[in-house]
Simulated scan of single mutants.
Amino acid sequence: MSEARTPFGPQPNVSVYEWDFEHFKIVVLSQYLAMPPHRTGLFFHHVTIDSRGTEPSVQDQLRNMMRGQSPAGCTSHFTRASLIHAIQMVEQIKQEISDPDQLAYLNEMAKAAEAKLAELDAATWLLAGSDYFRTETGQ
C-alpha cells in the first residue's frame, strides 16, 4: 500500500487486523483450518532487501516488490499461500496418522484445497506442487 493511513479493510474469508503508526501500518491476515494439531508448522513472510549495490534494473524490481500491493492483491497472495501451506501440512500430518477416518478427512481437505488453488491460479499450483519448488524451498 502506498499510504500508511489507507485502510486495508475487511476481506472475504480472511480475518484482518490493522495497527496504525505514524509512518507505517502493520496488517495481519489470518485464517483457520480444521485439521488435527501437529507438532510442526509452516509460515511465510516477505523481507525487505537493500537494493544498493545491485544493477539498476534489479533495484527497480526490488523497489517495486517492497512498495506492496492493494488489499485485494495482498489477500489473493495470502489465500494462495495459505492453500499451499494447508496441502503441505496435510501431507506432514498424514505420515503420522493411522486412523482411516482421519486420513479420509485429510485427503478430502487436500483435494478441496488443490481444487480451490487450481481455480485461483493453475500456474501457482503447478509450481507449488512441483518437485523443483519443494527442492528449492526445502518444502
Rank of each mutant, 00 (worst) to 15 (best):
L106D: 03
P37I: 03
T75N: 00
L126N: 14
N13S: 12
F21Y: 15
H38Y: 15
H23L: 12
Y17K: 10
G129N: 15
L120A: 06
S15M: 09
P100C: 03
I97W: 01
A113E: 01
Q139R: 06
E18W: 11
M109F: 09
G9W: 04
E108M: 09
V27Y: 02
M89F: 04
Q92I: 08
F78C: 00
M109K: 09
S51T: 05
S82D: 05
A104Q: 12
A128G: 05
Q139T: 09
E22W: 03
M66S: 06
R52E: 15
D131R: 10
Y17H: 13
R39A: 10
V90Y: 03
T137N: 12
D60N: 08
L126S: 11
S51K: 05
A123R: 15
L120T: 02
M89E: 10
T79A: 12
L117S: 00
Y105E: 04
K94L: 15
G53E: 08
A112C: 11
F44H: 13
Q95H: 06
F44Q: 07
T124P: 00
A128D: 02
P56H: 07
V28H: 06
G53Y: 08
L127M: 05
Y17R: 12
L83H: 05
S70Y: 00
S82Q: 10
C74M: 08
N64G: 04
E18H: 10
E22M: 07
L117K: 06
Q88W: 11
R134V: 02
A115Y: 03
E108F: 05
K94N: 04
V90R: 02
H38T: 14
A4R: 08
L83N: 11
L42T: 07
G73N: 03
C74Y: 11
Q11F: 02
A128F: 02
D99A: 12
Q61K: 08
E114Q: 13
D20S: 15
Q11P: 03
V90G: 01
N13W: 03
D121Q: 05
F24H: 14
V58D: 02
P7W: 06
D121S: 07
A122P: 00
V58I: 15
E108S: 14
F8R: 00
L29F: 03
R80S: 08
L33D: 12
A118N: 07
D101P: 00
P12Y: 04
A118K: 01
N64R: 12
A122E: 14
